[in-house]
């Protein structure tokens, strides 16, 4: 039996698609924001004077880099209710995705911190900056420049990874593709549409990153 394309048969499901795309986007944006926060903490732990903190930070990064996201999502999904914490599938997936992304984010931020020359810390120290002033005015602006591009890549990685949330009952784009595909037998069409949604989201992030970067760093490109 030959297969006839029929995007028309998908029309009734487009409303759900909008909601699904929104869920994908929201999940990814929140995960990125939260994982920047946690990743910064872990990166600072890895530069701490305390051996225990350094070890813990390193262990966290290695565990997250070497364990499948899907397994982490399942653990959060099944463990939290068992520990008495009831939450929506969305929030549970958000936690899993954030924990995972924070592992990579910590490495990105650490690389950014390492790229700040020791002379910067010395110059600031010689001028009597406190630790907070030093990070706020001298280190962070420089780290931000270094991690700006990798941050964009991580954003895209998180958008793609958020598709796994479908396995823990979040209604986002991948789960839209599967439910609509199996109820309408239109898997090719749903695949094409889902792929386009992801491609568009990724391209928006990508082009947005480049455009904003041009505006933010109007001043000389290479300053070292």
């Amino acid at each position: 039996m030959p297969y006839y394309f029929s995007f028309r048969s998908i029309y009734p499901y487009l409303g759900d698609l909008a909601a699904a795309a929104q869920a994908t986007l929201l999940l990814s944006v929140l995960a990125i924001v939260l994982s920047v926060a946690i990743g910064s903490g872990v990166a600072l732990m890895r530069r701490s004077d305390s051996r225990l903190l350094r070890f813990t930070g390193g262990l966290y990064v290695e565990v997250m880099r070497n364990t499948p996201l899907l397994v982490i999502l399942y653990i959060v999904y099944f463990a939290l209710p068992q520990l008495g914490l009831r939450m929506s599938p969305f929030n549970s997936a958000l936690i899993g995705l954030t924990l995972n992304s924070a592992g990579y984010m910590a490495e990105i931020i650490r690389a950014g911190l390492v790229a700040v020359p020791p002379g910067q810390f010395e110059a600031a120290a010689s001028q009597g900056f406190t630790r907070v002033q030093l990070y706020r005015h001298i280190v962070l602006p420089q780290v931000f420049r270094t991690i700006y591009a990798p941050l964009g890549n991580q954003f895209i990685a998180v958008i793609l990874a958020s598709s796994l949330a479908s396995a823990v009952a979040v209604e986002e784009v991948a789960s839209w593709m599967q439910t609509v595909g199996s109820s309408s037998f239109r898997f090719f069409e749903t695949f094409v549409i889902a792929a386009v949604v992801y491609l568009v989201l990724c391209q928006i992030v990508n082009l947005g990153r480049i455009a904003i970067g041009r505006w933010l760093f109007r001043q000389p490109e290479a300053y070292r």
Binding site: P117, G119, Q120, E122, A123, S126, Q127, I138, P141, Q142, R145, Y223, R224
Partner: peptide
């Protein structure tokens, strides 16, 4: 203090 490698803030 003035350093051998200046250590100006590049940003």
């Amino acid at each position: 203090m003035i350093f051998q490698h200046f250590n100006l803030y590049p940003h």
